[in-house]
Design a protein around this nucleic acid. Structure first.
Lengths: 86, 86, 86, 86
DNA sequence: TAGGGCTACTTCCATC
DNA sequence: GATGGAAGTAGCCCTA
């Protein structure tokens, strides 16, 4: 025997939350679409958002490793070594 | 020359919305976790939620096709043919 | 100092494998497309493939739980209780 | 009435191809794991692989847009403008 | 540490 | 041809 009321409550709570989540996801889409309409590059915008989520120090470290690898493969470095350039 | 203020506004709006979205996603997780703690099967709960999102008629149709295929392959039908059973 | 040759070998191995993987993925797409051209329902085909990956006993058990929940919610059971029908 | 043999053939072809695909995916995992064991940074390796998939010109263009945005937001540019440095 | 779930991104398809 | 939505894929995260 299942606790009907409890089950119903759970399902309804989840459905309501999912609905809210969807609304917000749609809002986000709208913002991107509007930005695109104003001439912004959506891909680059996404990249900006993603970068801001990350710790700059960690990021810099990752860049350095990546450039080391690119260099070892004879590829152009992506991230300039600003310090070294001076 | 980029519209700095416009860009900043876009980024901030997205970040705020994403934050809200994350909050809700966490709430959903909590509900599932609590349900699990009360003895519910999370996988089945997810299935219930998913099923309720779909049009029952469409669903029934898909089930029928699937059972036809399963039958043709000599596998047990998943969905009973209620009409046939009567 | 990075082991250039080792790095190059790793990258080339991965790239070769990814290429092979893509070839196969394309083949799979082709099969589905061809099946669709012959009148098969792709969604149902995917469902068949997925079902066959799973242990029938586990599957049956999951179905039973799901139907219990659906029943508690006053929804139509998806999976007939074959035993009960007799 | 369904073309049983045709269906069976389709399903078997897909299953065989999926099996092959899985084998290759596992091989790729193995290469990464082995690389990690040899001290390589897997995340950076993945980045290298991804970068090599893309047209350098397109990439450079995307970098430029991104840096423009980062600059407009008062964030440090990621990609040095090598030309400007000279 | 291996597997499964979740999220985000991309691609594909159908529609207009 | 563009736009929207659905599906597949990949990478990350967390649990067992």
């Amino acid at each position: 025997m299942i606790a009907k009321d409890q089950l119903r409550t759970i399902v309804e709570r989840i459905e309501r939350l999912e609905e809210q989540k969807k609304t917000i996801a749609d809002d986000i889409k709208d913002v991107y679409a509007e930005a695109k309409g104003n001439g912004f590059d959506v891909k680059a915008l996404r990249a900006v958002i993603m970068l801001r989520k990350h710790d700059p120090a960690k990021l810099k470290e990752q860049e350095a490793i990546l450039d080391t690898y690119l260099n070892a493969l004879g590829m152009l470095p992506l991230f300039a070594m600003k310090e070294a350039a001076e």
